[in-house]
Amino acid sequence: MHVYMGKRLLQLIPTLLGASLVIFFIFALAPGDFIDSDITLTPERAAELKALYGLDKPLMERYFIWLGNALKGDLGYSLQYQQPVMTVLKEYMLNSFLIAGVSLILTWIIAVMIGVFSATRQYSWYDSLITLGVFAAMSFPSFFIGLLMIKWFAVDLGWLPIGGILDTGSQSAGAAYLLEIARHMVLPATVLTMLSVGSLTRHFRANMIDVIKQDFVRTARAKGLKERTVVYKHALRNALLPAITLLGLELPGLFSGAIITERIFTWPGVGYIHMEAISNRDYTILMGFTMFLAVLTVIGNLLADWLYAAADPRIRLK
C-alpha cells in the first residue's frame, strides 16, 4: 500500500502542472485586466503599470514566471488589494474553511442518517416525504434559499444576524467571541448543507437498498443478529464504499458553492473576495483561488483512496 500511495503522490505532480497551465491561460486570455478596468488611467500610465507588473510579456514567459513563483508559495500580487495573493487568501481562508468544514460534517451525518432510515423503510410514507424534501432542497438556487432564510430568521423573527461574521462594533472576546461567530455562521452553513445533502442522501439510499438485498445481509439476519447490528455494522459499511468516491469532490465543491452563499451573507471568506475579483478583473486572485480548488480536488481523491482501504479490509491497494 505504501508503494501505491507513493505512486499516487508522484502522479499529483503532472496533474497539478496541467491544471496550472489550463488555469493560467484561461485567465490570461480573458479580455482586459484590472488596469484596463480603471478608466481614470491614461494610456501611458496604463502601459507603465503593465510593464511594472509584467503584464506586457509574452504569455509563455508570464506562465513560467507565475509557476516558478507559485512553487515558492508566491501566487502573485493583487492589484485590487495591493497585497500578495497569499496574504489575501490567508486572511479569508480560515473563515471559508469554517463554514465549509461544518457544512461537510453536517451533510454527511444527515445524509447517512436519513439515507439509511429511508432505505430500510423503502416506499413508506416516510421515504416518500424524504424524497420530496430532498428534491425540493436540490431544486432551489442558493441565492433564493439564502434570501428566504434571511427574511424568515433574521428580519421577521430576529433570531439570527443578517450577515457578516461579527456584530457591528463588536468587542467580545473568549467564549462570547466564539458564540458570536457561531450565531453568524448558522445561516450560511445551513444553506450550504441544504444544497449538498440532497444528492448525497440519494446516493446513500440507493447504495443501502442494493446492499440490504445481498446474501450476506440475509445470512446475518438468519443468524439472529439484531436489526440495528445488521444495518449499521454490516450493511452500512459496505454502502459507504461507493459514496467515498464523492468525498474527493465534496470539499472543493463546498468552496465553489460558497461563492454565492458568502456573497449573500457577506461572510468574509474566499468566495466573497472571489466575486469581487471577478467584478474588478483581478485575475491573480482568481488564479490563486482556482489553483487552491485544484489542489483540494487532487488531495480529496487521494484521501478517498486511503478511506477505501480503511472502510473495507478486503481492498488491497497495489
Score class of each variant (00 low, 15 high):
52 L>A: 14
82 Q>K: 12
115 G>I: 04
61 E>F: 09
141 P>R: 05
54 G>E: 07
102 V>I: 15
107 T>R: 07
145 I>M: 12
61 E>P: 00
47 A>F: 13
50 K>P: 05
45 R>D: 12
99 I>F: 05
85 V>K: 08
154 A>P: 02
86 M>Y: 12
42 T>R: 05
68 G>E: 06
76 G>R: 06
115 G>E: 06
143 F>Q: 01
44 E>H: 04
124 S>F: 12
79 L>T: 05
61 E>R: 07
75 L>H: 07
113 M>E: 04
59 L>Y: 15
46 A>S: 15
130 I>T: 13
140 F>L: 15
126 Y>H: 00
114 I>T: 13
108 W>T: 02
114 I>W: 02
57 K>W: 10
142 S>A: 15
152 W>R: 00
116 V>S: 08
134 V>P: 06
116 V>Q: 07
56 D>P: 02
123 Y>I: 00
143 F>L: 04
44 E>Q: 14
108 W>N: 10
84 P>I: 03
150 I>W: 05
64 F>W: 15
95 N>K: 04
135 F>L: 13
145 I>Y: 04
125 W>C: 00
66 W>G: 04
118 S>E: 08
143 F>C: 02
123 Y>P: 00
56 D>C: 02
70 A>W: 10
117 F>A: 04
40 T>W: 13
127 D>R: 05
75 L>Y: 14
89 L>P: 03
97 F>A: 05
54 G>K: 07
62 R>C: 10
139 S>F: 09
102 V>L: 15
38 D>P: 01
151 K>N: 12
98 L>S: 10
83 Q>F: 06
119 A>C: 10
153 F>L: 15
114 I>K: 02
121 R>C: 06
72 K>W: 08
50 K>Q: 13
38 D>C: 01
59 L>C: 06
117 F>T: 12
142 S>R: 03
59 L>E: 09
38 D>M: 09
54 G>V: 07
41 L>A: 10
